[in-house]
């Protein structure tokens, strides 16, 4: 199911109440917020009213706020070593035994 990915680039401050209402209805409260809405004529009509303020792309899946945040997070550049699980004799357990 395709979605519109809508990002508010320009603020709606000082614009007519109808424009501000559309922004609120779409869930765009601040600049640079991104929301996903299904591709329907209703949503297209809402976008038409705020077309000067937003960036719109058609995408296949919608992401939640946490997923968008995780996608932005850069690679940390390190990994944390953890102790291998061992049995009571001090021998390593599991499939990695042959390497030790």
């Amino acid at each position: 199911m395709p979605f519109f990915r809508i990002t508010l680039l320009r603020s709606g401050i000082g614009l007519p109440a109808k424009t501000a209402g559309v922004l609120k209805a779409l869930g765009l409260r601040k600049r640079m917020t991104t929301v996903y809405h299904p591709v329907t004529p209703d949503v297209a009509g809402q976008i038409m009213r705020i077309k000067e303020l937003v960036d719109v792309k058609e995408v296949e899946t919608s992401l939640t706020k946490d997923e968008m945040r995780a996608a932005r997070r850069p690679d940390p550049g390190y990994y944390i070593e953890t102790r291998k699980p061992r049995d009571l004799d001090g021998k390593t357990m599991g499939a990695l035994k042959s390497r030790w």
Partner: peptide
């Protein structure tokens, strides 16, 4: 650049709705 940005929004709306087999009067 702003004029072109609006044009691209209109194109996106039109193509996305056309894929669904729908049109919109305003667009």
């Amino acid at each position: 650049e702003r004029l072109r940005r609006v044009d691209s929004v209109i194109d996106t709306l039109d193509s996305a709705l056309a894929k669904q087999g729908q049109t919109m009067k305003k667009v």
